[in-house]
């Protein structure tokens, strides 16, 4: 084991500059992946807004009397058990309308006072279902079904998926980078690997130094990526705080995850590449 570690270090020393370039090349996609993950986590609470119930307002025909209105409400409540229906009394409705239409007061009083329709508020998980009520003869109109919460939630969900997808692409590119580097190193050392096989080195003795030589830049890349991602998140946090929103944070577990990825990616890349090389050199 010690021998394998020493050989790995010797390989690293021999290819010092290339190893530093590998570490830096791994750092960039891993730091961006850490950043996008942090931003995805930050936007997650907004995703929940999308599933919040929306209140849709329904206007019933003014000619409906109390018993008809109550029967209609009871019928809807029975049909749609997840809805919460509440009738807005006339005084409240008048108050609300007069905020927007001050001249309404005159229209509602006097000999030719207009008759206000009945307003029913429907709180539903899926507001699109409420729009179907507009087809009934008793309903004059159904209010808008979109809400700012739902729009924000939808945007946040899209952003989470997008950032998650970008993170995965960045990590795959980091993996391919490490695999390509090891592939080139293996072929650069193909003669030596062949000689090692011929004099009785086992596969683990041959692969071990390459794994060590890839692992050490990977660990450095993990640490550097954590610092880089933390810095990017901090920059966004400062900007977000300036507009009074809750800032994103770079969680501690992501540091461990970055280093873990820095360890795992090169190991897997080394094993896959060396395995392919071993199969190719079957008789050596």
């Amino acid at each position: 084991m010690r021998h394998i570690f020493e050989e790995g270090l010797a390989l690293l020393r021999r290819r010092g500059v290339v190893s530093v370039i590998l570490a830096m090349s791994l750092t960039v996609p891993m730091a961006l992946a850490g950043f996008t993950t942090s931003m995805g986590l930050w936007s997650r609470p907004l995703v929940a807004l999308e599933s919040h119930a929306t209140v849709v307002r329904v206007l019933l025909h003014p000619r409906m009397d109390v018993s008809q209105r109550q029967a209609w409400i009871a019928e809807q409540a029975r049909t749609h058990q997840d809805w919460r229906l509440s009738e807005i009394d006339r005084e409240t409705l008048e108050e609300r309308l007069q905020v927007w239409f001050p001249y309404l007061e005159d229209l509602l009083e006097g000999e030719h006072a207009i008759e206000l329709p009945t307003l029913v508020e429907v709180e539903a998980e899926d507001p699109e279902e409420v729009t179907a009520l507009a087809e009934g003869p008793t309903v004059i109109a159904v209010g808008p079904t979109s809400s700012i919460d739902r729009v924000l939630g939808l945007m946040a969900r899209t952003m989470t998926w997008l950032l998650g997808g970008i993170s995965v692409i960045l990590l795959v590119s980091a993996f391919l980078l490490a695999a390509t580097w090891i592939h080139l190193e293996v072929y650069r050392n193909a003669d030596e690997i062949t000689i090692m096989r011929l004099v009785g080195a086992t596969e683990s003795a041959i692969r071990g130094p390459f794994v060590v030589a890839a692992l050490i830049p990977g660990i450095f890349a993990g640490v550097a990526a954590s610092v880089g991602a933390w810095y990017l998140v901090r920059m966004v946090a400062v900007a977000v705080e300036a507009v009074g929103l809750s800032p994103p944070v770079f969680p501690l577990w992501l540091v461990a995850a970055e280093i873990g990825v820095g360890v795992i990616l090169p190991i897997v890349a080394a094993l896959v590449t060396m395995g392919r090389h071993a199969r190719a050199g079957e008789t050596d």
Binding site: R197, L198, V199, G200, A201, T202, E203, A278
Partner: peptide
């Protein structure tokens, strides 16, 4: 491959 490596150590 592994057994071959072990044999090569005797040669």
């Amino acid at each position: 491959r592994h057994k071959l490596a072990l044999l090569r150590r005797k040669v």
